[in-house]
């Protein structure tokens, strides 16, 4: 015991350094973890405060989960979350890499810089602002797209109440926001590739296309794989802003815009059933956890240094 305190004292400066952060983790990460037990309770607020509310709420076992899985909701939100993220990952990867290669081949570096700066813009905008942008195109009576449709004599489309368009709209908006940023990141890696490789290929008479296929892409593959696996690890978590702001919280669209995160939030707001919403959140955390572990395991196999842990 004495040795233990001695160690504490010897490390006091370092301990002092981690202390603020550790307290933060404790309150904002570990306490909420304890709070997830309300997923097994019928939560009722108690005036004694936080702890009393949790401990005095009635246990209901798996009822909250039964509720989640008894309706179609669990299926819908899981499907939406997974499929959208899958589409974002695959299409995002193809487009970003293609754009990065394209940028690297451009002659005229000043223009290339200007293009890059333009492409980078969406990354810096909040989803609220992107939501306004989308509205200026999709508004039923004023939006640009319906006006263009009008020129061709087509009927205006009720964008915000017709679910069938939204899978495409959401994928488009998501790619619009992320491809520019990702391609610039890939471009940075392409710039790091040893030039002598290309020179050797050129001497062998390789065409431009062959150079891309046989040098650029293979040299990029570690970072591609790692970025992709990181994204796969997060596949159970949706981008709340995209799914909440861009469709303007329109009820008719829920079948294609509701993801786990928005479902949890709406559960809290419409029914006030904290236990049920927490159950949905816990379901996400558990499955998400498994996916992170698996994908990290795979990253480790490929490149030990890139693994998170």
């Amino acid at each position: 015991m004495a040795a233990f305190f001695k160690n504490l004292i010897r490390n006091k400066v370092m301990l002092f350094m981690v202390l603020p952060g550790a307290i933060w983790f404790f309150f904002f990460s570990y306490l909420p973890l304890v709070g997830t037990i309300v997923a097994f309770k019928q939560y009722r607020f108690n005036r004694e405060g936080f702890w009393a509310s949790i401990s005095k709420s009635e246990w209901v076992g798996w009822d909250n989960f039964k509720f989640l899985f008894s309706t179609n909701d669990a299926y819908t939100i899981t499907r939406n979350t997974l499929l959208y993220n899958l589409a974002f990952i695959i299409l995002g990867l193809i487009l970003s890499v293609a754009m990065a290669v394209l940028l690297s081949e451009l002659v005229g570096k000043t223009m290339a810089k200007i293009y890059q700066t333009g492409m980078f813009l969406p990354y810096f905008l909040s989803w609220v602002i992107v939501g306004y942008f989308a509205f200026s195109f999709l508004s039923m009576d004023r939006g640009m797209i319906n006006q263009i449709l009008g020129w061709f004599g087509a009927e205006p489309v009720q964008w915000y109440s017709d679910p069938k368009y939204w899978p495409y709209i959401l994928v488009f908006v998501s790619l619009w926001k992320s491809v520019g940023y990702n391609s610039v990141v890939y471009l940075a890696s392409i710039m790091g590739i040893d030039k002598s490789l290309y020179e050797a290929a050129m001497i062998d008479g390789a065409s431009k296309w062959q150079q891309i296929k046989n040098i650029t892409i293979p040299m990029l593959s570690p970072i591609i794989i790692i970025m992709t696996l990181l994204a796969v690890g997060r596949i159970f978590y949706a981008d709340f802003g995209l799914f909440y702001q861009v469709p303007r919280d329109s009820g008719t669209l829920y079948s294609v815009t509701n993801v786990i995160d928005t479902y949890v939030y709406r559960g809290l707001k419409t029914t006030g059933e904290i236990g049920m919403s927490t159950a949905a959140g816990l379901y996400q955390s558990v499955v998400g956890f498994v996916l992170v572990i698996v994908s990290n395991f795979v990253v480790r196999k490929i490149d030990k240094d890139s693994a998170l842990f």
């Binding site: 160690n7 010897r10 490390n11 370092m14 301990l15 981690v18 952060g21 550790a22 983790f25 309150f27 904002f28 990460s29 570990y30 306490l31 909420p32 973890l33 304890v34 709070g35 997830t36 309300v38 405060g49 936080f50 509310s53 995160d261 949890v264 939030y265 809290l268 904290i274 919403s277 927490t278 959140g281 816990l282 996400q284 955390s285 998400g288 956890f289 992170v292 572990i293 998170l308 842990f309």
Partner: peptide
């Protein structure tokens, strides 16, 4: 001396989180 402990203490939070509602309760009530 405790670097491993605090590394793990931080990393764990990336793997598993309580989610929106418990966090909301901690921030607003506690």
């Amino acid at each position: 001396r405790y670097r491993r402990f605090f590394s793990v203490f931080a990393i764990l939070t990336m793997l598993f989180n309580g989610g929106m509602i418990p966090t909301y309760m901690v921030v607003s009530q506690l």
